[in-house]
């Protein structure tokens, strides 16, 4: 019967990973990715590896989303800057 929990956790991880790939916006991907992390933590714990689950939780719940979202913000800022520059050149011509 313990296999039920393992099977459920595996299914959840597979579904979350697929959903993370199917979402194409990096910020939204970060959201799905955090759920994938939660699922992995459950899977590791169900497989009796709570140490690994705890590592996954520690890294995946706040630090990874923070790094991804900060990177997205920086990239978008560069994109906006270039856009504004191009617009400016267009006007002056």
């Amino acid at each position: 019967m313990d296999d039920v929990l393992g099977g459920l956790a595996l299914l959840f991880v597979a579904a979350a990973a697929t959903a993370a790939v199917l979402n194409r916006d990096p910020a939204r991907q970060a959201l799905v990715l955090s759920l994938l992390g939660l699922g992995l933590a459950v899977l590791f714990t169900v497989l009796q590896a709570p140490d690994v689950g705890l590592s996954q939780l520690a890294v995946g719940s706040a630090i990874t989303p923070l790094m991804i979202l900060l990177t997205v913000r920086k990239v978008r800022r560069i994109g906006r800057g270039r856009q504004a520059e191009d617009d400016g050149k267009g006007r002056s011509r």
Partner: peptide, 11 residues
Amino acid sequence: EGDEDRGEGKG
């Protein structure tokens, strides 16, 4: 901020 993403200042 890099000089290239300081759009408004340059245009």
